[in-house]
Design a protein around this nucleic acid. Structure first.
Length: 470
RNA sequence: GGCGCCGUCGCCAAGUGGUAAGGCAGGAGACUGCAAAUCUCCCACCGUCGGUUCGAUUCCGACCGGCGCCUCCA
């Protein structure tokens, strides 16, 4: 079995990866802040994490994955205040949308989706541990901060020299309570609006709420343990979020927080980062409105390596839509065929070897997909030769299923509409009659009528097949 | 100012020190009544300029162009 390798942001190198216990990968992925439906940029990261999860399972390991839901932060409080709601009333519907979108894009369910507000006690305990270690201090504003100069290795992940953060960087001017501009909040004292929307809790430092960075450390350690195998997220989280997670966690436990860090690159639109502030976001709702299939989006995302920026365009999406159509047609054929040639088994082995080699090589999905398309061509060729080897067919099905269990890019079938189906079958009977009479004009008329309903027909040797294409 | 990434066929995109995967689009055939699907064949010398090397798209340097992080952020 080929070695499973991942690029570790911590060492900036490809490294062999295996779970510490040799069995279960303890995996933490930073999740969404639930004040707005996640956009496709967010989902690119979740798709990359889905790929990672599925490849880990292909490799034979179990996964215990945590994805947090940040359900208390400035933006949520702002929205709650504007709408006169509690933060829970703001976040609950968004959490539902997140899961619906997630399912739509076939992102597998993680084992845990902890909400930050359900782990306040763990966060308070963590802050207390940090106070005991002397790396946290309470400021005049009743907030608690982490003193980064008490944590000498601060900056290791992002390689940002704190002394160099100057000209281009904007440092918030209003947080004067901090001893050092780089210190970050562990616990924020409550303001009136926080109380109004139920975003404040009791603590040893008075009413307040946990800082954003703290939740990930607290929940990761509470659910997965003090040293986890894998921590993933978008590249933008590397600094300061992940840097701060490392500082908090390791200062408290004295142990490494995550053995391997993985960061996914951005999705761009029109050449710039997809972000609400830029106003170029696209969502799963847009995808649905434009009838882009989830399989096509997955193909599109996986056609570029996860550590490379990817530009979203209608053209690229259409190419993926078409590519995935081919995969779907082949999947149908694989089901339909009764046997293959002996060579088909060999072709399947090649796919298995090449796809796993690519996937285990730092999740090289583009290469795995190339292997898949090579396989589809070769297998089609073998089927055209009309063999009678049952075993090779079964092997081809098995390997195709294994690769697709990772990529999951077979487009969904058209909606089951019994009335429409009956109508199509009736039309096809009429058409068959017309063709039998060699009345091709009439046959073509019928085909046109069927195609007008978004259905394409294929005259095969025995019968005529049809499928919904839109 | 600091840190980092990228520039490969019309579009998307892998990859390697010894003359470039795959997808989409396109062209020519086969099959078909015609289509559709499928098959066959065709379709790039890797941003520019230097350097290292027997040999570089692949290493080094400079330059040009694009993007990101350093602030909430997937």
């Amino acid at each position: 079995m080929p070695e499973f390798r991942l690029y570790n942001s911590l060492t900036r190198q490809d490294e062999p990866f295996a779970p510490a216990d040799g069995h279960t990968v303890r995996f933490y992925a930073c999740g969404p802040t639930v004040y707005n439906p996640a956009h496709l940029g967010n989902f690119r990261t979740f798709l990359f994490e889905d790929l990672l999860r599925r490849v880990i399972r292909l490799r034979g390991w179990d996964v215990e994955q945590v994805m947090n839901l940040t359900d208390v932060d400035d933006k949520i409080i702002k929205r709650a205040t504007e709408q006169g709601k509690t933060i829970r009333e703001v976040t609950d519907p968004i959490v539902e949308i997140f899961h619906a979108d997630r399912e739509f894009l076939r992102v597998q369910r993680a084992e845990h989706y902890p909400r930050a507000t359900d782990y306040i006690a763990e966060m308070i305990t963590l802050v207390q541990r940090l106070e005991q270690k002397g790396v946290a201090y309470k400021a005049d504003d009743n907030s608690v901060y982490f003193a980064i100069d008490k944590f000498p290795t601060y900056g290791t992940l992002s390689r940002l020299d704190t002394r160099e953060i100057k000209s281009g960087a904007r440092v918030s001017q209003d947080e004067y309570a901090k001893e050092n501009a780089q210190d970050f909040a562990l616990w924020k004292s409550a303001k009136a609006e926080d109380e109004a929307c139920e975003a404040a809790w009791d603590s040893p430092w008075g009413r307040g709420r946990a800082g954003w960075h703290l939740e990930c450390s607290a929940m990761a350690m509470a659910i997965l343990g003090e040293t986890i195998d894998l921590h993933a997220g978008g590249i933008d989280l590397m600094f300061p979020h992940h840097e701060d997670e490392i500082a908090q966690s390791e200062a408290a436990t004295g142990k490494p927080f995550a053995r391997c860090w993985c960061h996914g690159e951005f999705l761009l639109t029109d050449g710039t980062k997809m972000a609400k502030r830029v106003g170029n976001v696209a969502t799963v709702a847009d995808l649905r409105a434009n009838k882009v299939s989830p399989a096509a989006l997955r193909h599109f995302v996986f056609s570029t390596h996860y550590r490379k920026q990817l530009n979203l365009s209608g053209e690229a999406l259409e190419a993926s839509q078409e590519a995935v159509r081919r995969v779907g047609d082949f999947a149908d054929r694989l089901e339909r065929e009764l046997a293959g040639t002996p060579e088909l088994a060999q072709v399947a082995e090649t796919l298995m070897v090449e796809a796993t080699a690519a996937l285990y090589d730092d999740l090289n999905a583009p290469r795995a997909m190339a292997a898949l398309f090579d396989f589809i061509s070769a297998a089609n060729r073998e089927f055209d030769r009309r063999g009678s080897d049952k075993g090779s067919l079964l092997r081809a099905r098995d390997v195709f299923a294994q690769v697709n269990a990772v990529l999951d890019i077979i487009p969904e079938r058209g909606l089951d509409d019994a009335t429409l189906a009956a109508w199509v079958e009736e039309q096809l009977r009429l058409r068959a009659d017309a063709r039998g009479r060699r009345d091709f004009a009439a046959a073509d008329e019928i085909r046109k009528a069927i195609e007008a309903k978004g259905i394409v027909i294929e005259d095969a040797a025995g019968a005529t097949r049809w499928k919904v294409v839109r």
